[in-house]
Design a protein around this nucleic acid. Structure first.
Lengths: 339, 339
DNA sequence: TTGTAAGCGTTATCAA
DNA sequence: TTGATAACGCTTACAA
């Protein structure tokens, strides 16, 4: 039983001895209603704290004014900024938001996505999880002409608008910064290479090495499964033992910090012996010692843009958008590359 | 426009030349339906990927099978675990979840709460924000007999079930551990003292000092506005300058780490000169150097219990629950108190 | 075994 | 200026 105490327009109509349509019109400030009637209705509505039933409204209007978000993680500063950007844009355009966190699980992603196919939301913003390789659930969404926009980790197989970071450029900039810092033996440690974002960051790294005339050394390249702290500290063990590198580009800040911990333990000094650049500009990077040079990720802007594209599509279903919007990253210099 | 491509039972009925009620019954596996009919319906439903309209179902059943969560922050390891606990319990009981993050803003909390009063959710789980002092929005919720359960930061004025941590006990344990470590001049740095949780942690601190026969020194006590890193580093400046303390109980891990940074900068060694205990067991506490002794916060359990109480109330609206469930914290010893 | 019709709460169309 | 009615998609008495 949902709401015992809830008042409907029927109740108000009954008490006032008028019809529900008049009540409805009065509440909508329809100029046709007699001022006295309108006032009486509004007073009673206020007295009873009347609120229009959301479900009935949705059914009537065939729209929920709600957008869904499928996102792999919540405790993640970048995603959190994306969510804020989405929320701010959505709220100021009269939309609500439902967030589903998939915890990077494909199964959860499928369940959550399908749970939103049934008219619960007017459209969907999605960032695919690390473990996703099959996109049928998103295709089903798109096939029903439900507006869908991807952000960050996108699905290329589906023809919908996308908002991404130029990860290639960012990877290139990060590595180039290490080159400029004087590094000549630069390692790469990144997240799951099945993700396009990681392929791009890695691609930028290779391009920068290439341009600088530096050789690519396979033993200095690690693609980790998660991109977290433990992966980071594990990934550089061999390189550290071999004392072979003098620079490191890490695909996430947590990888960077994990790696730094291992290097510090082995007696290496950061940035003197090894300069390190992370990725994402997490706040821990300002707190950690040494503070971490990193690439910014404009999450708020990404969220705003994605929400804008989605709401555009919802409000204008005929004009199909399929563009990809690209945002850019900036280098944030801190101690870990200050020589 | 919500879903152009969406199929309704009407469409199926039309195509099969039968009535909607038969379709509805067939899909519900009603044994009255002739097997052949049932099969035909199911096949067509499958072919068209039919999904029952969520909104229509909600309106019909007067329940949404959705519970709302009002939570101050998302990027917060404790809250994130709470959410997981809630989600797991809710999902396995056939409920969905809507999360509203208030970003510790009272205004946002009011808006978000009121947006859920209108039949969008069958019940609400709430943790009040730091800036909230007026509880009318929650009262309105409760007055409509909408099930409501508070967790962590609760509202005493409202007669609904609550799930809390024994913050008093935890503050006591943390401080006692410092006493046992040999500290005699123990400072307290905590979050906003208008919150009950902080009053309790502070209360536990005072009790432990008292029992140990240690004096309370007003200049060693700071109630911060936010409880974040910057507050932490600011809060201990005077004490550090005076070289007056040898122990610190911080009400959050971020406060602890901010304080440690200031102390380290001033040349103090942790834990040798000052032993530090934090609160919440955030993962940064394992990464930071020195690793941080802290009090655990069983967020997952809290979320599960809160969801359980809420769903109990939803399924059984007559039996009013008003109990408070108390969970307990445990000391996690790490380097910052290892002498 | 199936169909008709009412109802969930709301708004819009038509009549009065 | 107001009221009766249909409709959104679904389920369920009640009838047939």
């Amino acid at each position: 039983m949902m709401k015992k105490g809830s008042v409907t327009i029927k109740d108000i109509a009954l008490e006032l001895g008028i019809s529900v349509s008049t009540v409805s019109r009065a509440l909508a400030d329809n100029p046709l209603v007699k001022p006295a009637t309108r006032q009486a209705v509004k007073e009673l509505a206020k007295k009873y704290n009347y609120r229009p039933n959301f479900t009935a409204l949705s059914l009537r209007n065939n729209r929920t004014r709600t957008i869904g978000i499928i996102i792999p993680q919540l405790v993640h500063e970048f995603f959190s900024m994306v969510i804020r950007g989405i929320e701010d844009f959505a709220y100021s355009n009269g939309y609500n938001v439902i967030i589903s966190s998939t915890h990077e699980s494909y199964e959860r992603e499928v369940i959550d996505t399908k749970a939103l196919i049934n008219g619960r939301v007017d459209g969907l913003l999605a960032c695919v999880s690390k473990s996703t390789t099959n996109y049928d659930h998103f295709k089903e969404f798109a096939e029903r002409n439900l507006p869908l926009v991807f952000f960050d980790c996108i699905c290329d197989e589906i023809d919908s608008p996308k908002v991404v970071l130029d990860d290639f450029e960012a990877g290139y900039q990060a590595t180039q910064h290490l080159v400029e810092t004087g590094c000549t033996q630069i390692a790469y440690v990144g997240g799951p290479i099945n993700l396009q974002i990681n392929q791009d960051r890695f691609g930028g790294y290779k391009k920068a090495l290439n341009e600088a005339g530096l050789a690519l050394n396979e033993s200095w390249i690690k693609h980790c499964e998660t991109g977290d702290y433990d992966d980071g500290s594990e990934s550089v063990r061999d390189m550290v033992a071999a004392r072979s590198i003098d620079g490191l580009f890490a695909g996430t800040d947590m990888l960077a910090i994990g790696a730094i911990k291992t290097m510090k333990k082995a007696g290496l000094q950061i940035p003197k012996d090894v300069a390190v650049v992370g990725f994402s500009n997490w706040s821990i990077g300002t707190i950690y010692e040494p503070s971490l040079t990193t690439m910014s990720q404009p999450g708020y802007e990404m969220g705003q843009k994605a929400a804008e594209l989605l709401i555009q599509q919802i409000d204008n279903p005929d004009k199909k958008l399929t563009d990809t919007f690209t945002l850019h990253s900036e280098l944030i210099q801190r101690e870990s590359t200050q020589r």
